[in-house]
Nucleic acid binder design. Sequence first.
DNA 1: TAAATAGTGTCTCTGAGACATTATATT
DNA 2: AATATAATGTCTCAGAGACACTATTTA
Lengths: 248, 248
Amino acid sequence: MTIDEGQLKVLLVKRGQDPYKGRWAIPGGFVHENENFRDAAERELVEETAIHIAATHLEQLHTYGEPDRDPRMRVVTVGYLALVPALEAPKAGTNARCADLVPVSNILGSLLPGHLAFDHDVILRDAVDQARTMLETCSVATAFVQEPFSLSQLRAVYEIIWSQRVDTGNFRRKVLSTPGFVVRTGERGTPRRGGGKPPDLYRAGDKVRLDPPIRRLTSGSPSWPGDRKPVPQVSGQYAAFGRDGVSP
Amino acid sequence: MTIDEGQLKVLLVKRGQDPYKGRWAIPGGFVHENENFRDAAERELVEETAIHIAATHLEQLHTYGEPDRDPRMRVVTVGYLALVPALEAPKAGTNARCADLVPVSNILGSLLPGHLAFDHDVILRDAVDQARTMLETCSVATAFVQEPFSLSQLRAVYEIIWSQRVDTGNFRRKVLSTPGFVVRTGERGTPRRGGGKPPDLYRAGDKVRLDPPIRRLTSGSPSWPGDRKPVPQVSGQYAAFGRDGVSP
DNA sequence: TAAATAGTGTCTCTGAGACATTATATT
DNA sequence: AATATAATGTCTCAGAGACACTATTTA
């Protein structure tokens, strides 16, 4: 997942073979012998996107094992979620299959299931839920922005992923009063066109537990339909090519 | 996991075969063809303990797949955590292998790893962490007590799993002010010997999110070494026999 | 200058922490 | 009566929500 053009997006691949030929799917592949899951996830991510792994938050989420989830044979998927900052010009992958960043709202927004191949709708929904919860209790939001970043950029991560407005002052107070969340660089950024005070810049601190958590409105529906302005500094079209995911 | 004799205990089986012959292990087995993970976990639980599944909270935790975790071959374990109330006299299993409830502190208390077979120390530690966190943010504590229960019993669940004192009044206020956490039956329990006011009794409500969460002292070490008095009503020796876990 | 954005301050209110107090039982 | 436990009340304080205000840039 990444934040691009003010939206939460997922990297998906378009399947080139049956089953689900032509449908979007979460990239993945088979774990090698003598390879652990995390290494496998990193390897697949590199193959698909050539993303620089060092700056990536990668985490195991959930394992999917319904017997009929792949019509060909029984396949078990261990789902991993990677949080990556929006990159300007990621290198293309080595393979011929089409991969692209797709807005999450395009897929989960419609209530009809079956947009993605296999049970990947469910997986994606779980991943988004997980990301939302993680922002509440831990300082992972920094994984979505490139360093150095302003607090407005960091706040935008919360607003986009939660689909909720977050108060400037309160957010600032919380972040800065949490030891280790961010580290001030001393630099100041350049204001956006249209004007504005140049923001203080920060780097990510340690991965820290937020206690008490940052609360979001628990209301089921987003309080804030679609009047989002684009997010500062977080922009740039993103497309990559990688090989088709072989397995669900 | 269950709470028994005022302690958090795990059901473990003693391995009858190499590798790790004679060591305690988390019960488990292979998933059948055309069986999903949850059903497999329930089946294994029944085989080991004959526990009545209906009252059981069962949840997938994490998946372990290091290539060398089983010396015989590569085996992937999808870990499930079951929270069950202490039962008075569970039926014995069908198999000859020894199974028993072991206090978690006996295993994780000592800092030396390698008490359990395979990487089960790690799995157990993850499970306990997960249980601790779940109590903070959701109303699962009710899964540990038999209905109807008093608020003191419910509070004891928190105290035992967190190894921390929890204030009577504040706990009460929080639980009762959370809609759906517990439902009052109208009955009153009998006081314990030694005297006391008969407590109001409750049943578990819906599984509800605690927002804001119940906070525990985030300090790493338990604030409260070992001066625990036994827990009210939650008692009764527990032993069961089941077949040896075939796989890690 | 107006507009836009970043940073700061302040008032209030919720809810948790830390008690004290009352109620109802056993011994 | 002494003791034990359950239930209730109360004072205080940390921290979030809401919002106003100041600072510094571009157009």
